[in-house]
Write a protein that binds this DNA or RNA. Sequence first.
DNA 1: AGTGGATGGTAAAGTGGCTTGACCATACAT
DNA 2: ATGTATGGTCAAGCCACTTTACCATCCACT
Lengths: 119, 119
Amino acid sequence: MLERLHARGFDDLDVPHLTVFLFPGPHGARPTELAARLRVSKQSLNYLLGQLERLGYLERRPDPDDVRSKRVMLTRRGVAAGRVMRQAVGEIEREWRARLGAQRFDQLRQLLRELVEQV
Amino acid sequence: MLERLHARGFDDLDVPHLTVFLFPGPHGARPTELAARLRVSKQSLNYLLGQLERLGYLERRPDPDDVRSKRVMLTRRGVAAGRVMRQAVGEIEREWRARLGAQRFDQLRQLLRELVEQV
DNA sequence: AGTGGATGGTAAAGTGGCTTGACCATACAT
DNA sequence: ATGTATGGTCAAGCCACTTTACCATCCACT
């Protein structure tokens, strides 16, 4: 994933940043809410948001509904990075599908899904 | 894995220590050789070995064949920890087998094995 | 036999993501 | 109006790890 991002111009991203983009992504979320969803501390997330803001992937804008709060807004670059990540997932899935065969790949997905369910 | 180790008295182990025990374990190996196998730097491995030695899981003894070199020797406690790790793997596999059914569990294993082959 | 590069190991400083602790401002329930 | 909850941030410290720099020994080659 990171290799593909770097190859396509997003070479200032690093592994920890990827968590922020985990489905469905940070756009529109409030930092505290996002931290809870990603199971990291508010401070840790804030640190990553600071980096991503400095790198131009997102902005922290005031929340119109709550003066204390912020809203994460992806920039054009941030949206582009998210798109590349989803493309990369698609590519890797196609590779694996080619290696295992379509039917067996679907089996793999299904088996993993069952294992992940209600851990 | 870590939960089970902690529950069985090895509660001074932490995630990074587990790499050192990766199959087939550190017993008899030289630090540099082990570092290469685990794909970590010599210094990083040495740091972990230092901790594990201090905690009583292993000792670094002089290598009879090379004065420069050392040999990692698991203590009784180290061997016991390794045994618990293998037991834990067995238990988790049995759980998953029960959840998926024996045949489908074997399929999962086989599919994952194919994906891991020659990455 | 001597020499120079390779190898095994370690110390020390620095890096970076993260946690803990403390704090301020605003919201909201009573 | 007041006390507690919530959203956010700063600062210090932690810890696994990297980088840099060494020293000692081994070994191939002349």
